[in-house]
Amino acid sequence: MSILPKTIMLVAALGLAACTNPNRFGSGDDGAGVGATAPVPGIVPGSADDPTSVAHFQQRIGDRVLFLVDQSTLSAEGRVTLDRQAEWLISNSDYLAVIEGHADEQGTREYNLALGARRANAVMEYLVSRGVSANRLKFVSYGKERPLEICSAEACYAKNRRAVTILSAGLSS
């Protein structure tokens, strides 16, 4: 159990993963992005220090918000994260995003699919209300199919009840 998070961190540090691998389910281990702008001296393009990179969005902006049990209401903390996401998306207009909604394992499969959709949609509507163009955004629910943490305790459940904004290269890049 204690080995696994370290392994994930190691993978993240090595930057092995490509941009938005749909199999990663917002596990935060994606490395380089599709930084389309000219390199800034001293900053490795695509690294978290590159403010136009996916890595920057994930690590500095924050790519996810968490939810209470059975809830899809955005928390105050979640809204702060989404304000930053909206600002970033507006200034990095080459990117499209899919918001992935997830539930913890305490629930039936169909209900959790619908619940994950509620969460992802709440994020999408908030981003649109902050000025992100709706046609750049989509949402999808994975219900309880792709937990990040695998223990059967609230510490894990809390991290699994999430909506993650996954970036992809837009039409112009």
Binding site: S72, L113, A114, R118, N121, A122
Partner: peptide, 9 residues
Amino acid sequence: YSLTQGSNT
């Protein structure tokens, strides 16, 4: 079947 549109299923 179920269909999700926006937040509604």
